[in-house]
Design a protein around this nucleic acid. Structure first.
Lengths: 274, 274
DNA sequence: ACACGATATCCATATACCGGATATAGGGAG
DNA sequence: CTCCCTATATCCGGTATATGGATATCGTGT
């Protein structure tokens, strides 16, 4: 390392290096609209941008097909080209590739939705989703991402994250999606401990009122949690204790099979600290 | 309209208005890497960018999680955040939403893959894919996009596109994916006419050697083709003429049901020209 | 019909970007 | 093991380019 001339001496006036500001902003705009599609002015407010600047950015992005605008309402949302690019992420995704056969096996004939999710930026992001035929569970397709403290899928991934990350996460603002969403940091800490102890998570009604879910962690060769398998069902299904037990069994079997396919080996945890 | 002062008088030296160049480029880089993931220098060459410029762009995008880089090989590929943003496209997609139940119904118990695709920028882009359980057909998941002249899904959408678009498309370079890919503009023109006449398309081995597919158009209220339903199966399945006939029937039924859900009404085509 | 909020466009200026040059790392051949 | 060559990383000044306040138009609700 060439020891950076003289630390921070750079001509750039005031300390920080503001690189590719335009690009950064454009992507922030995209991400903002992915989460809050809507009118230009709301985005300008939400992002703290001057109207003129935002307008230019929006126009460019729309022209390129990265955003689309409903000409009636002037509402902006993500455009087809972003989907085109985004899907390329899956094409190179080792975990997903390994998991796919097992997920399909689990979904075969099941009366619940099967998902594979990973954690990105404090959210549980869906990589694969096999809907139960018959009834449709809303928001269980692609495109809906939930905070980590809501739903079993997020909680599993949070439970196995770095302790420092957990603390930081729970110290932040914890959104409440339904009246049943747990937002007490202390209680959540305990829930996470329970999850680690039993090896899976279960929640009901904390993401959507009439559904519940079970999730188990997927480990890689180096025993890190890289994803979670999640079964989502209408809530009534959890009334039946024996049905639930069967689900848990299948869940753990599936998650474990995927972990093994990724090079994880069951071996006692203790050996890790040997 | 304020009649633009004096057309093109603008101080900007030479006619064209070069807006948000950096942003444009960044997105081009992303799209390039979505299609050709790989080393920085290849992208620089492919895009005709100076190394320094590209490097800055890549660094920024990687830092933001829009690209990811394998530290071993220094190869770049699309990052998780692009998937995160891209999926938002599906969340607001009216056609997909209407189609989903019918697609699931069609996939129920089928021994072939069911897809919904739309056209974007000269490519057939997959919006929904329900894999056949059992055997895996590679490249039938998300993330693989094929030119319009390859595969039944592209051909259907091309067949119903504006005549001018068809001519322009067929005049361009037609990639050959397998030895069986048709690349003769004249022959393709005839194939498209046949497709319009019979209402669906069929191809074998022109995308991947050992698969074949059937596709039918999905119309919206105003009789435009907005998507296509596509059934993909291993090639041997098409040996059985009666099985194929059944597939065609289900395909047309499905595509039609979706069209109707979108507000399309069967009515004779002739009334359109009345 | 009016008014107000939202969207579109203009322009001078400062600034953030471009790209040639230079420095480091990596890795293959001899 | 050493050399060389290619790929990656960083620097820096001039200048093209983005910024955002101001102004003009649109369009929607009352």
């Amino acid at each position: 390392m060439p020891e950076r001339k003289a630390a921070g001496r750079g001509k750039t006036r005031s300390g920080a290096a503001p690189a590719l500001k335009g690009v950064r902003r454009a992507l922030e705009v995209l991400e903002y609209l992915a989460v809050h599609p809507g009118r230009a002015i709301d985005a300008a407010e939400g992002l703290g941008l001057s109207w003129a600047t935002l307008h230019r950015t929006l126009s460019q992005l729309e022209q390129g097909g990265f955003l689309q605008r409903d000409p009636e309402s002037n509402r902006y949302s993500i455009g087809p080209r972003m989907w085109f690019i985004g899907t390329a992420y899956l094409a190179n995704h080792a975990v997903l590739e390994a998991a796919q056969p097992y997920l399909e096996m689990a979904a075969e004939g099941a009366d619940f939705t099967v998902q594979l999710v990973e954690q990105a930026d404090g959210l549980a992001v869906t990589l694969y989703s096999h809907l139960t035929s018959g009834e449709i569970i809303t928001k269980s397709t692609y495109g809906y991402h939930f905070p980590l403290h809501c739903g079993s899928k997020g909680q599993v991934m949070l439970a196995y994250a770095e302790p420092a990350f957990i603390d930081a996460y729970l110290a932040g603002h914890l959104e409440r999606l339904t009246p049943e969403t747990m937002t007490e940091p202390e209680v959540l800490h305990e829930q996470l401990a329970t999850i680690r102890a039993q090896g899976f998570a279960k929640t009901e009604g904390d993401v959507q009122r009439f559904t519940g879910s079970l999730s188990a962690p997927v480990f890689n060769r180096s025993r890190q949690v890289v994803a979670a398998v999640c079964f989502i069902a209408r809530r009534s299904l959890f009334r039946d204790a024996s049905a639930e037990e069967e689900m848990v069994e299948l869940l753990l079997k599936t998650a474990q099979a995927i972990s093994i396919a990724l090079g994880w080996r069951p071996g006692d945890l203790s050996e890790e600290y040997s």
